[in-house]
Design a protein around this nucleic acid. Structure first.
Length: 270
DNA sequence: AGCCAGGACAAGT
DNA sequence: ACTTGTCATGGC
């Protein structure tokens, strides 16, 4: 790792597990390497990551902006306080303790929108595969075998036939509609952030292929709305069986944070 | 062969 | 407003 041009070591402020955070189904462009490091392509940057001596250390030949990466990994947020609040509920405590190193990332808006459109009626390995193919076909080459996530203007100009190689199936037309709406500024990251969660969800749902679940994923994983609570089959099952149908009040305001712990717990035990 | 996968849409009550 | 069949594709 000494051969990289840039290295950035950041304070974690609480718990962080890259394994739990990068493979809990919120992001799709990271992988684990033989040497124990994690590598990913984020925001057009190819980088490696590892927790070393209690810090998150990033390595890359690309410039590493500390402010960007602290936000991406949610390092400035008070996760000890989140955990303390959630653990007042005995069942939520079990969920948190099952994967306490999860952080809800702050991902790029367009990438989050597209990957969760791809996620509908799909499984995580294939979401990853389709996303990879999308990048290889329409992203910018940033190194040997490395491709950035394509921008909205590029995808907005495509037809469903152009997208056939990535095997997204019926989702192809949704991807294009999302690209068109974002490229023209109809739906923008800033407008989502400044709106309340309910209004922001309505804006997102003007895009074909974006329903309540995908909208909440974008609001939580990109726009930082911690009250957004994406409901899929696992979460519905967990809320029914573990909490009698309603999310407990201990999660008020940070339902989305709780959602990630509940999701992991449910996928293993329910 | 049939069912499921981090859903959404359209058509039908 | 609530239910149901359908939508591509791939893995099991």
């Amino acid at each position: 790792m000494n051969s990289f041009k840039n290295r950035l070591c950041l304070d974690i402020n609480g718990t962080l597990s890259l394994e739990e955070t990068l493979f809990c189904g919120q992001c799709f462009r990271w992988q684990k390497n033989e040497n124990g490091f994690y590598s990913g392509i984020v925001h057009g940057i190819y980088l490696f990551a590892a927790v070393q001596n209690g810090k998150l250390c990033l390595y890359s030949d690309f410039p590493l902006d500390g402010e960007y990466w602290r936000r991406y990994f949610a390092l400035d947020e008070d996760y000890p306080a989140y955990h303390a609040a959630l653990c007042k509920n005995e069942t939520l405590k079990k969920c948190v303790e099952y994967a306490p190193g999860i952080r809800v990332l702050h991902q790029d808006f367009f990438e989050t929108l597209i990957t969760f459109i791809i996620s509908q009626n799909n499984n995580i390995p294939r979401i990853t595969k389709i996303t990879q193919s999308l990048c290889e076909n329409f992203g910018n080459k940033i190194g040997e075998g490395l491709y950035s996530f394509p921008d909205e203007k590029t995808l907005a100009a495509l037809s469903p036939e152009d997208l056939a190689p990535i095997k997204a199936g019926f989702r192809a037309k949704y991807i294009i509609d999302a690209a068109v709406h974002t490229a023209c500024g109809d739906v923008s990251f800033n407008s989502l952030c400044s709106a309340c969660a309910a209004d922001a969800a309505e804006m997102l749902k003007t895009i074909k292929g974006v329903g309540p679940k995908v909208a909440d994923c974008v609001l939580l994983f990109s726009a930082g709305k911690k009250e957004a609570f994406p409901k899929d089959v696992w979460i519905n099952r967990a809320v029914d069986r573990l909490f009698g149908g309603t999310v407990p009040p201990e999660a008020a305001g940070i339902e989305g944070i709780a959602q990630q712990y509940i999701f992991q717990y449910a996928r293993s035990f329910l």
